[in-house]
Design a protein around this nucleic acid. Structure first.
Lengths: 336, 336
DNA sequence: CGAAATAATGACAGCGCAAACATTTTTCTT
DNA sequence: AAGAAAAATGTTTGCGCTGTCATTATTTCG
C-alpha cells in the first residue's frame, strides 16, 4: 500500500515537532475549535521549520468537503470565455475556492467526459456552459448533491440554477434594433450552428424576427470552424462576393464581427453608412476598435459574480431549479 | 469520521452488484492488471446500473499518484495566456492529465499562495510562468519531488526545467531589426515594468541595443495597468502628444501594439511609412489585423507542447536543472 | 473552597481507494 | 495426465486527514 515515502512531511511530523497531537495541528491550521494562543504559536512555528504542506486530498476525503469548483467551458479561443473565466476568478478570489478548468470544444461527448472527471474530484460546485447536455451528463449532474450552475443561457430548464440571457430574445432584439436603424438587406455570418447552440438560438430569434416583419431572410455564411477573427474576416469577404448589395451584416459573436470590421477597413468599406456590422457579447476588444463595435452586451461579469455567489450562499442544492436572467443591452457603437 | 452518507456509491457497491471484489472493479476501471473479458463486462454493467462515479481523491491518496497539473498564470486578460493555456490544453488532451488553473495578477505574493494551494492537491507537475519567485515559493518548489516547469522565460536559472526564450535577446533583436529597417526615432510603450518582469527584460535588451549603437534612447510611456488594447491606444496618443516626431514605437506586447494600430487607423496615421508599430508575442489577433502586425513570435504553442511532454516523459525531477530555449522569430508584418 | 461550567487537548476510527502479497483458477507443456 | 507457468481474482493494510466522542486543565461563582 504505497511505499511510504519518508521524505513527505505529514501532520504527525508537525505534531511531534510541536509536542502536541495531530488533531491539534489540524485545528490550528483550519482555525477550527478552541486553541490556546501558546500552542497555536508553537504549532505554526513547527509548520515553518518542518516545511509542512497541507494535503487537501486527505482532508477532503476525511471531511467530504472540498474547495474545488469545476468550471467547464466550450473553448478558450473564443474571446468570451477567457472573460467569463476572469469574472469567475475575480469573484472566487476571496472565497477560498479554487477553480478547475475543463474545455469541451463545443462537443457534448467531450463535455460528458469532462463532467465525469470533474465529479471525481468531489468539487463543491460545477459551473458549466449552456443548458444542453448529453443524457448521461444530465443524469450525472442530477444525481450529484452539489450545486450545478449553468451559465450563459436562460432559455430553457436548468438542472439546478441557470444564469444568463435568452439568446433567442437577443437575436430578435438585434433584428429589431437594426430594422429601426433603417437597415433592410441583412447578411449573417456565424460558425457551425450545430456546435454552438447558443449561437443557434440567437440566429433563430434573429431570423424569425426578420421574416415576421416582412424583411427578406438574411443571406448567410456559415463557417465550419469555431468563432474567430480570421473566420469573420474571410466570411465577410465571401459573403460580399456572393451578395455585394447587403447593407448590414450580423455576426454570431464579437470575434467574428471584429474580423468583419477589419475586412471593411482593409477594403475601404465605410462602416455603418455603407455597411453595418453588428456583433454579440460586448467584449472589451470590440469596444477598443478604432470605431467601437455595435453589439449586445451579455453581462458576463455579472454572470460570473452571481454564479459564484449562488453556491457560496447555499452549498446544498435546493429542491426546485431556478433561472436568473441577467438580461442584455444593446451597445450602440459606431459600426451599425 | 464523516457521517457516512449512504447515498454515495462506492467501489464496494459496484463490486457487490457485479459479484466480485473491490479491487477487481478498481482494476477494470483503471485497465490495470489482467481481467477476463467476462468479469470486465459484468463490472462495467454494474458501474452503469449503479451510476458509480469514481472518487479520485481516494485513489490519489492511496496511490500517491495524481493526474492533476497545476498551471499558474499571471493573468487571463493579456491575450498571451489564454493562448498558452490553449496550447497546454491541447497537449494535455490525450494524456489523461487535467489542468488546474491559478492566476497571480503578476503578484509574487499571490503566486506564493497559489503555489501552496496547488501543492496541497498533490499534482503530478506544476507549470508556472517566469523564473522570478518569492523566496518561499522557490523553497516549496525546490522541496517538492514533482516536476516544476517554468515557462515563457529562458533567461535565468530554473528550479527544474525552464522552457521559453531570452527576453533580453528578443528586446535587442527588436532594436536591431528596426534599425536595419531604417527607423531612428524610437518610442516605447509598456505596462508597469516592476510587475511584468519579462517585459522588463525585453525593455532592457531593447534599450541597451539602441544606446550601444549610437541611437537615442527611446521616449517612453509606461502605463500603470497591465497590458491591454485600450492601454496601448491611450499610450500612443499620449506619447505622440509628448513627442510627435517619432518614426517607430515598440510596444511591450501585441495587445498594446494592437491598440497602437487602432490609434493610427482612427487618426489617419500611415502605418509603417509614417509610423512603425512593433509588438511582442505574435498573437493570432495581431496577425488578423487589416495589416498584419510586425512583431516577434514567441512559439507559445511549442512551449506548451514541450512543457507537457517534459513531465509526461519523466515524472520524477532530474538532478540537474535544464533550460530549453525555444527561441523566437521576427514576423515581418505590415506595420513596421 | 468545591462543584459546575468551560476551555483545551487527545484517542480512535474511517473516508474510498490501490499497492503488495496471497491465493485460486486456467492454460500450456511434454 | 501431472507438473509448471501464467492468468485471474482476492485479502489485507494504510495513504493523511478530520469527525466524533472522550478526557484533562482551567476558570467561574455561589
Amino acid at each position: 500500500m504505497t511505499k511510504r515515502d519518508d521524505a513527505t512531511i505529514t501532520l504527525k511530523d508537525v505534531a511531534e515537532a510541536a509536542g502536541v497531537s495531530g488533531i491539534t495541528v489540524s485545528r490550528v491550521l483550519r482555525a477550527s475549535g478552541p486553541i490556546s494562543e501558546a500552542t497555536r504559536k508553537r504549532v505554526l512555528e513547527a509548520v515553518k521549520t518542518t516545511g509542512y504542506v497541507h494535503n487537501r486530498l486527505a482532508g477532503v476525503l476525511a471531511s467530504a468537503r472540498s474547495n474545488l469548483v469545476g468550471v467547464i467551458l466550450p473553448s478558450l479561443s473564443n474571446g468570451v470565455f477567457p472573460e467569463v473565466m476572469a469574472g469567475i476568478n475575480e469573484a472566487l478570489a476571496q472565497s477560498g475556492f479554487q477553480p478547475v478548468v475543463g474545455v469541451t470544444d463545443y462537443d457534448l461527448m467531450k463535455e460528458e467526459t469532462v463532467v465525469r472527471s470533474m465529479l471525481s474530484w468531489k468539487p463543491a460546485a460545477i459551473i458549466l456552459t449552456g443548458l444542453q447536455h448529453s443524457r448521461n451528463t444530465r443524469r450525472m449532474l442530477e444525481d450529484t448533491p452539489i450545486r450545478v450552475i449553468e451559465i450563459m443561457d436562460a432559455g430553457g430548464r436548468p438542472i439546478d440554477v441557470a444564469i444568463g440571457l435568452s439568446h433567442r430574445d437577443a437575436g430578435s432584439a438585434t433584428a429589431q434594433h437594426l430594422i429601426e436603424k433603417g437597415y433592410r438587406r441583412f447578411g449573417y455570418i456565424g460558425p457551425d450552428l450545430e456546435r454552438d447552440l447558443r449561437a443557434h438560438d440567437r440566429h433563430e430569434g434573429f431570423r424569425h424576427y426578420l421574416t415576421r416583419h416582412g424583411i427578406a431572410a438574411p443571406v448567410e455564411y456559415l463557417s465550419r470552424e469555431t468563432s474567430s477573427i480570421s473566420g469573420g474576416k474571410e466570411g465577410l469577404a465571401e459573403l460580399l462576393r456572393m451578395k455585394p448589395d447587403l447593407d448590414v451584416v450580423v455576426f454570431s459573436s464579437d470575434d467574428m464581427a471584429i474580423g468583419g470590421v477589419y475586412h471593411c477597413i482593409a477594403t475601404g468599406i465605410q462602416l455603418k453608412t455603407q455597411l453595418g456590422i453588428f456583433g454579440f457579447n460586448g467584449l472589451d476588444t470590440g469596444q477598443s476598435l478604432p470605431q467601437p463595435l455595435s453589439t449586445i452586451r451579455s453581462n458576463r461579469h455579472r454572470i460570473g459574480q452571481i454564479a459564484v455567489e449562488t453556491f457560496i450562499n447555499d452549498v446544498t442544492r435546493p429542491l426546485t431549479s431556478k433561472v436568473i436572467d441577467t438580461g442584455f443591452s444593446i451597445i450602440h457603437g459606431e459600426t451599425a
